[in-house]
Amino acid sequence: AHAFGLKTGETAVVRGRVIYADETPVELADTYYPREIAEGTPLAEPRKIKGGAVTLLAELGHITDRIIEDVTARPASESEQQQLQLAAHEPVVVIERLSLDESGRPVQADVMVAPARLRRLRYEMKVS
């Protein structure tokens, strides 16, 4: 709600998924879209999107120009332990990603939770 500047009572469209690798759950991913962008499109339907959501957003005129990510680590919740088949107190990495179009409007917000042991984050920065 905060990312999209929603007022009390306003809602967004969310797509929740469990991502698997070789039949093992490796990530929980919730993706949010502003209702006025997603409503009436495959973004608001509970199925895979042919070509992917980023391609569909671009076809709808919402091309991602900038991404902001916040990365944190914490112990998994009980629900995350169950869904990701984790040991008690096993840490997870949480990536919160906000995708903005060329005008700076947020068009997609993601919250991804994965076992820390399966994630490696690498950033490269040029310093002039």
Rank of each mutant, 00 (worst) to 15 (best):
residue 1 A to E: 12
residue 1 A to N: 14
residue 2 H to S: 14
residue 2 H to L: 04
residue 4 F to W: 10
residue 4 F to A: 04
residue 4 F to Y: 09
residue 5 G to S: 05
residue 6 L to F: 02
residue 7 K to A: 14
residue 9 G to R: 00
residue 10 E to L: 08
residue 10 E to N: 09
residue 11 T to S: 15
residue 11 T to R: 13
residue 12 A to N: 07
residue 13 V to F: 08
residue 13 V to T: 04
residue 14 V to C: 12
residue 15 R to N: 13
residue 19 I to D: 10
residue 19 I to L: 14
residue 21 A to M: 11
residue 21 A to E: 13
residue 22 D to F: 01
residue 26 V to E: 01
residue 27 E to R: 06
residue 28 L to G: 04
residue 28 L to T: 03
residue 35 R to V: 04
residue 38 A to K: 00
residue 38 A to I: 00
residue 39 E to I: 06
residue 40 G to N: 09
residue 40 G to F: 09
residue 44 A to N: 00
residue 45 E to A: 12
residue 46 P to R: 09
residue 47 R to S: 15
residue 49 I to E: 05
residue 50 K to F: 00
residue 51 G to I: 03
residue 51 G to S: 12
residue 52 G to T: 07
residue 53 A to I: 06
residue 57 L to T: 06
residue 57 L to D: 06
residue 60 L to H: 07
residue 62 H to C: 10
residue 63 I to F: 02
residue 63 I to G: 00
residue 64 T to D: 07
residue 64 T to N: 07
residue 69 E to Q: 14
residue 70 D to A: 12
residue 73 A to C: 14
residue 73 A to Y: 12
residue 75 P to W: 11
residue 76 A to Q: 03
residue 79 S to Y: 11
residue 80 E to Y: 02
residue 82 Q to T: 15
residue 83 Q to L: 15
residue 85 Q to A: 15
residue 86 L to E: 07
residue 87 A to R: 13
residue 88 A to L: 11
residue 88 A to N: 13
residue 88 A to F: 15
residue 89 H to G: 08
residue 90 E to W: 01
residue 93 V to D: 01
residue 94 V to T: 14
residue 95 I to N: 03
residue 95 I to E: 07
residue 97 R to E: 05
residue 98 L to H: 08
residue 98 L to N: 03
residue 100 L to N: 01
residue 103 S to W: 01
residue 103 S to P: 04
residue 105 R to V: 06
residue 106 P to Y: 02
residue 106 P to K: 08
residue 107 V to W: 09
residue 108 Q to W: 05
residue 110 D to V: 07
residue 112 M to R: 09
residue 112 M to Y: 05
residue 112 M to A: 10
residue 113 V to M: 10
residue 114 A to F: 02
residue 114 A to M: 10
residue 115 P to E: 04
residue 116 A to C: 01
residue 116 A to Y: 06
residue 117 R to D: 04
residue 117 R to H: 10
residue 118 L to K: 03
residue 121 L to P: 00
residue 122 R to I: 12
residue 122 R to M: 13
residue 123 Y to I: 15
residue 123 Y to G: 15
residue 123 Y to R: 15
residue 124 E to Q: 14
residue 125 M to P: 00
residue 125 M to T: 14
residue 128 S to W: 01
